[in-house]
Amino acid sequence: MYARIRNLREDADLLQRDIAQILNCTQVCYSNYEMGKRDIPTDVLIKLANFYHTSVDYLLGETDVRAPYPKNHK
């Protein structure tokens, strides 16, 4: 999972501080997410999945399909 969020960030040519700003956390906090030193809260995983237009399952390594799931419209 940690390599996936790092690779997505690098593929988007973004710095850790850029993603930290989006997540409203510090660069150090985000760096700890990428290195696996800190568990990523569910709400942060959702924000990352939405930002990168993918699914939480993709971020977690449960699937290799990068496309997000369709939204349920009720």
Rank of each mutant, 00 (worst) to 15 (best):
Arg17Pro: 00
Pro41Glu: 14
Leu60Gln: 08
Tyr2Thr: 07
Arg9Pro: 07
Gln27Cys: 10
Tyr33Met: 15
Thr54Asp: 07
Lys37Trp: 06
Asn72Glu: 08
Gly36His: 14
Tyr58Ile: 04
Ala3Thr: 13
Arg66Gly: 01
Ala3Ile: 06
Gln16Gly: 09
Thr54Lys: 02
Asp13Cys: 06
Asn32Thr: 10
Ser31Val: 01
Arg4Asp: 05
Asn50Gln: 11
Arg9Ala: 10
Tyr69Thr: 08
Asn24Ser: 06
Arg6Asn: 12
Pro68Asp: 09
Thr42Arg: 08
Lys47Pro: 07
Pro41Arg: 11
Lys37His: 11
Ala12His: 07
Ser55Lys: 02
Gln27Lys: 11
Thr26His: 06
Val28Lys: 07
Ala67Gly: 05
Leu15Ile: 05
Gln21Glu: 06
Pro70His: 07
Thr42Trp: 13
Ala3Lys: 10
Leu23Arg: 01
Tyr69Gly: 06
Ile19Arg: 02
Arg4Ser: 14
His73Gln: 14
Glu10Tyr: 12
Thr63Ala: 10
Asp43Met: 10
Tyr30Leu: 14
Ala3Asn: 15
His73Thr: 15
Asp57His: 09
Asp64Asn: 14
Thr54Gly: 00
Tyr30Ile: 13
Arg17Ile: 06
Ser55Thr: 02
Cys29Val: 14
Pro41Ser: 04
Met35Thr: 14
Val28Tyr: 13
Ser55Ile: 00
Ala20Cys: 11
Ile46Lys: 08
Arg9Trp: 10
Leu14Thr: 04
Arg66Met: 12
Ala49Leu: 01
Arg17Thr: 10
Met35His: 15
Thr63Glu: 07
Val28Arg: 06
Gly61Gln: 13
Arg4Phe: 15
Asp39Ser: 11
Thr42Met: 09
Tyr30Met: 00
Arg38Asp: 09
Asp39Tyr: 03
Val56Met: 05
Met1Gln: 02
Asp43Val: 06
